[in-house]
Amino acid sequence: MTYSLINTKMSTAEVTEISSESPVKPEDLKTVQLLAKGVMEIYEPPLATLNTHLKELTEKQEAVHNMISSERRRLEDLQNDAMLDALLADIATNKEKLTSITNSMMTVHKRVQSLQVRAANVEKVAKSKSQPKPTS
């Protein structure tokens, strides 16, 4: 006898339609229904518990996936930020300009110092020439 998809709530006519190969005896029908009921009683609670656990795990997995995805997007945004790249390029350019200006200022400062020394020497010479020489 072939029985497939037997539900405990199926009527005798429905079982007869499913198994059209041979006539169904009422004792066989009752036995099949009792077996189906027993199997359902044994496996239904653990399956329901497993289903609940699977739903919880799926929800947690989705939450973790969403967190990882948002973090990845945030990191990509930081790495691909054109404004940040432009600012970093400006920093390098400004550093070069600052170094150039600093060197120029040092050169000007040295030149000013040497001109001050020269001016002091010229002033001494001018003072010494402007003072009358004592005649002996």
Rank of each mutant, 00 (worst) to 15 (best):
24 V>E: 07
25 K>N: 08
25 K>P: 06
26 P>D: 11
26 P>N: 02
26 P>R: 05
26 P>A: 08
27 E>N: 05
29 L>Q: 03
29 L>W: 00
30 K>D: 06
30 K>Y: 02
31 T>K: 15
31 T>N: 10
31 T>G: 11
32 V>E: 08
32 V>M: 15
33 Q>L: 15
33 Q>A: 10
35 L>T: 03
35 L>N: 10
36 A>V: 13
37 K>R: 10
38 G>Y: 04
38 G>Q: 11
38 G>V: 02
39 V>R: 09
40 M>G: 00
40 M>V: 03
40 M>Q: 10
41 E>K: 04
43 Y>E: 00
43 Y>H: 10
44 E>L: 09
44 E>V: 08
44 E>G: 05
44 E>D: 12
45 P>K: 03
45 P>C: 00
47 L>V: 04
48 A>M: 03
49 T>H: 05
50 L>P: 01
51 N>S: 00
52 T>L: 07
53 H>R: 12
54 L>H: 02
55 K>Y: 09
55 K>T: 02
57 L>N: 05
60 K>Q: 15
61 Q>R: 13
61 Q>W: 04
61 Q>E: 08
61 Q>K: 09
65 H>E: 09
67 M>G: 10
67 M>E: 14
67 M>W: 13
68 I>C: 07
68 I>H: 10
69 S>L: 11
70 S>W: 02
70 S>H: 09
70 S>R: 10
71 E>W: 05
72 R>P: 03
72 R>E: 10
72 R>C: 05
74 R>K: 14
76 E>P: 02
80 N>W: 01
80 N>A: 04
81 D>R: 01
81 D>L: 00
87 L>P: 15
87 L>V: 12
88 L>D: 13
88 L>F: 05
89 A>H: 01
89 A>V: 00
89 A>D: 06
90 D>Y: 01
92 A>P: 00
92 A>E: 13
93 T>K: 10
94 N>R: 14
95 K>C: 08
96 E>W: 04
96 E>D: 11
96 E>V: 15
97 K>M: 02
97 K>V: 07
98 L>C: 07
98 L>P: 02
98 L>Q: 13
98 L>M: 06
99 T>V: 12
99 T>R: 12
99 T>K: 06
100 S>Y: 05
101 I>E: 15
102 T>H: 13
104 S>F: 06
104 S>W: 08
104 S>H: 11
104 S>R: 13
105 M>V: 12
106 M>T: 13
106 M>W: 05
107 T>R: 14
110 K>S: 12
111 R>P: 03
112 V>F: 03
